[in-house]
């Protein structure tokens, strides 16, 4: 009898902050040690420390340097996304060239400096798309109100409409995932990130039902979250083994395959 394909877990959403350790090297070693306990094969790491909501151009570079240092001994286990900001477009383009085109990183991370429906972000999106880099945009829908620069899923939909052939990732699915899934449902170039919310049951089932299994990416948002609570969303979900494998790793590998191939990174 043939054995079912092995689950290969790739975690889309990891941070160095919140880990035990004092240096990027110590923090990364601690992160990998915990990932090993959970059978996680690869980690995507972005943003350094301390968390900076509206970082200066210098701070973006400093935090990307922290991640580059953290990755330096772990290229067989981890990739990085460059932290960029629409409040510093020229500096962000330089960081994309430095960290992705000329460095080991494979995507960009946009956080809460400015909402992503603002066309000021477009040069960053175009440059990342040229390099086939993954584009990750944090989103939340907070009942008490978002931060002024914090995007909602509908902001990402507006961005996707301006870049209809560019794959985009809806970070956290807006936190309020029932609204987030509905918001991005009709926008096929948006995939969702499961990370960084409580492990509320039904999230993954609704996402598979409404988006199909191929637009869903497992991520944790460690160290603020644990691998455990975020993996549980997928482990507990009443979905097929094939869908579970897709969400835990196949979909992210497919998204990153063009840039990894371009960089000569083996996929197996």
């Amino acid at each position: 009898m043939t054995e079912p394909p092995r689950e290969r877990i790739w975690d889309l959403h990891c941070h160095l902050s919140g880990m035990p350790g004092r240096t990027p090297d110590e923090l990364m070693a601690a992160l990998v040690a915990r990932a090993d306990r959970m059978g996680i094969e690869r980690l995507i790491v972005f943003m350094g420390y301390p968390m900076a909501m509206d970082p200066s151009a210098d701070e973006l570079r400093r935090q990307n340097d922290q991640v580059l240092q953290a990755l330096s001994h772990w290229h067989h286990r981890a990739f990085g996304f460059a932290y960029v900001s629409p409040n510093h477009v020229e500096a962000s383009l330089r960081e994309i060239d430095r960290c992705i085109r000329d460095g080991p990183m494979v995507g960009i991370k946009l956080w809460v400096a400015r909402r992503c429906n603002d066309p000021a972000i477009d040069p960053i999106i175009r440059r990342a798309a040229e390099l086939r880099a993954a584009i990750f945009q944090h989103t939340w829908i907070k009942v008490g109100g978002n931060h002024p620069g914090e995007s909602r899923p509908e902001d990402l939909v507006a961005l996707a409409a301006r870049h209809p052939t560019t794959p985009l990732i809806c970070g956290h699915t807006g936190g309020d995932w029932e609204r987030g899934i509905r918001t991005v449902r009709a926008t096929p170039n948006i995939s969702i990130d499961l990370a960084g919310s409580d492990p509320t049951a039904g999230f993954v089932e609704m996402a598979v039902r409404e988006l199909g299994p191929r637009r869903i990416l497992y991520g944790s948002d460690v160290g603020g979250r644990g691998f455990a609570s975020q993996l549980a969303k997928v482990r507990s979900a009443a979905i097929s083994p094939a869908d579970r494998r897709a969400i835990l790793g196949d979909n992210l590998r497919a998204m990153l395959t063009p840039i990894l191939r371009a960089k000569g990174v083996p996929l197996h």
Partner: peptide, 8 residues
């Protein structure tokens, strides 16, 4: 919550 979280 997803029950697996407790064990994980």
């Amino acid at each position: 919550f997803a029950p697996d979280a407790a064990l994980l």
